[in-house]
Design a protein around this nucleic acid. Structure first.
Lengths: 168, 168
DNA sequence: TTTATTTTTCAGTAAATTTTGAAAGTTCGA
DNA sequence: TCGAACTTTCAAAATTTACTGAAAAATAAA
């Protein structure tokens, strides 16, 4: 298989996986493209490669930067901006997990906290089960969250350099 | 806060979280409804509670059963079918993770495996980095997968009865 | 300051996904 | 074997989400 073809395949498949996980197709594709690109790419190059509009490119590149997995590179003497993706897949995964937790899970956990203030008659089996379910979800989330923070907190460089290499 | 109101809030919020994670709103809402319902519910009750059509109810309940987190209950003497959700949130989470892995991640890992057969000239930096990136993703996935399988494999009853209770 | 280049914004449009509802299918008691 | 009760299917409609492209804004060289 030719490299160009393989890259295309990778980008398309990454796009599909993205949509299934609630990430828009283009964003996932741009990420994939930058992941397998040695050199940083300009907006024009991304547009050409993925056949998408300038606006679409701009919006999704910015979103990827917000997620902390793509960064802007300025080349001396060049007017254009270039973009490059974090290449260490462990770091990428940790950033995504951390960010989803912060943006999506935490706000809802706060709402759940409110819901425990339901008028709870001791004899009301329904209310009791409800409060217990909410508590369980919070406790589960807290545990998961703790585990994730622990992983993220490890000195990333050390982890990358050592542990990941172990199974490389 | 009244119980009915709290349940509504919970259902709505669960629906939002669902959409952000690539699960359709109704499916997440039905799941939430069944999670906080003590008694199994019929299709008619679900329709009435969530104000949705019969077809929509049927499709999403079936999907939830496919995911292994809702089951059909037959009450003796009743013609209708009733549905109930797995209430242990640990088991729910493990089933969802396991299932997403099987349905969405594994097929793409298989594709990635193909992509490593790219024509790889020793001096081609681009091809080298490409193959290395694909390998890293596979290795990362394999590790994550292993970790998940390990958790899922633990005797669920023991785990639920013992470990989960520890932080309850 | 002016002009050329590049980035950002966003209203309108296009595409994808979800939902409805009515018809077809199934089940089961009489 | 009939028909009432219930479930399933799926084409069409509604809704949601994503994308385009042109105009506005920003940036930097002349």
């Amino acid at each position: 298989m030719k490299l160009a073809e393989a890259k295309q395949q990778f980008i398309q498949n990454w796009g599909v996986l993205g949509t299934q996980w609630g990430i828009n197709r283009t964003m996932a594709q741009i990420h994939a493209l930058l992941l397998v690109s040695v050199e940083p790419m300009s907006a024009d190059e991304i547009m050409a490669e993925l056949q998408i509009s300038r606006g679409n490119t701009n919006m999704n590149v910015r979103e990827l930067m917000d997620w902390g997995i793509v960064e802007k590179i300025l080349k001396p003497g060049e007017r254009k901006e270039f973009f490059t993706a974090e290449k260490d897949i462990w770091i990428v995964a940790m950033r995504i997990i951390k960010e989803r937790k912060r943006r999506e899970v935490e706000p809802i956990l706060n709402v759940l906290d409110q819901l425990k203030n339901v008028e709870a008659d001791k004899n009301d089996k329904e209310a009791k089960q409800f409060v217990s379910m909410i508590s369980d979800i919070q406790k589960f989330s807290a545990q998961a969250s703790k585990g994730i923070d622990g992983m993220v907190k490890m000195d990333e460089h050390w982890f990358t350099g050592t542990l990941l290499k172990l199974f490389k």
